[in-house]
C-alpha cells in the first residue's frame, strides 16, 4: 500500500516536472493538503496559523520539487518541509497563546464522563503545546501521523535514538502532569 502510494507520488512528480502537467501537481496537493494542515495545526495549536503554515509549506515544497531526490518517500520529504515551516513560523510567534476552543470527540455516552474526558483532553492539549518543539514534534509524528521511528528520524533530521529519547521524555512529562492534575482534582 505504502509502496504503491510512493510510486504513484513519484509518477505524478515526474509528470509535473517533465511535462509541466498541472493536473498531476493538483492531484499531489489535494492528496497531502489535509495531512500538512494537521501537522501544522498540531504544531501551532491555532487554526489560522496552521492555515498560514500549510500554505507556506505547500508553496515551498512545490518550488523545491526539482530538488526532491526520491531517496525517501515524498510524504516524509513533505512532512520535513512542513515541520521546518512550522518551526520557522513559531519562532516568529514564540509568545502566542494556544487556542483552546476546538471540537472534541467522545464515544462515552455519560454526560459527566464526557465532561471529564473533555477536560482531560483540553489539559493534555495545553501540556502538549507547552512541550519543547522537538519533543512535541516527536509525539505529533509518532502518535498522530503513525510514522515509524526511522521515518520520524528522517523527518526530524536526527538519529532514531534521539527520536526515542525525545518521545519518551515527552510521554513521561505528559503522563506525570496528567496524573498530578487528576490527583489535584480529586483531593
Amino acid at each position: 500500500m505504502d509502496e504503491d502510494s510512493r510510486l504513484e507520488d513519484n509518477r505524478l512528480i515526474d509528470s509535473y516536472l517533465d511535462e509541466g502537467d498541472e493536473v498531476a501537481l493538483e492531484e499531489i496537493v489535494i492528496k497531502y493538503r489535509r495531512e500538512v494542515y494537521l501537522i501544522a495545526y498540531r504544531m501551532a495549536g491555532d487554526m489560522e496559523e496552521a492555515k498560514d503554515i500549510t500554505q507556506k509549506a505547500l508553496i515551498s515544497a512545490v518550488a523545491k520539487l526539482k530538488d526532491f531526490k526520491k531517496k525517501s518517500s515524498f510524504k516524509t520529504w513533505l512532512y520535513r518541509i512542513t515541520v521546518n515551516a512550522a518551526l520557522n513560523h513559531m519562532r516568529g510567534n514564540a509568545y502566542k497563546t494556544v487556542e483552546l476552543c476546538e471540537t472534541m470527540k467522545s464515544e462515552d455516552e455519560g454526560v459527566v464522563c464526557r465532561l471529564i474526558e473533555k477536560e482531560q483532553e483540553r489539559n493534555l492539549k495545553v501540556l502538549l503545546a507547552a512541550l519543547p518543539p522537538r519533543q512535541r514534534l516527536s509525539v505529533i509524528l509518532r502518535v498522530y501521523k503513525g510514522l515509524s521511528l526511522a521515518e520520524t528520524a528522517d523527518v526530524m533530521g536526527c538519529s532514531q535514538g534521539a527520536v526515542k529519547s525525545h518521545y519518551h521524555s515527552a510521554i513521561k512529562k505528559l503522563k506525570t502532569t496528567m496524573a498530578a492534575n487528576q490527583t489535584g482534582e480529586y483531593l
Binding site: 496552521a50 492555515k51 476546538e102 472534541m104 470527540k105 482531560q120 493534555l124 502538549l128 502518535v143 503522563k175
Partner: peptide
C-alpha cells in the same frame, strides 16, 4: 500509562478549516 496518554492524545481532534 503511555497507552492512556497516547489514546487521550488521539481523541483530540483538529478543527476542520
Amino acid at each position: 500509562g503511555e497507552l492512556f496518554v497516547v489514546e487521550t492524545l488521539l481523541k483530540i481532534e483538529a478543527p476542520e478549516p
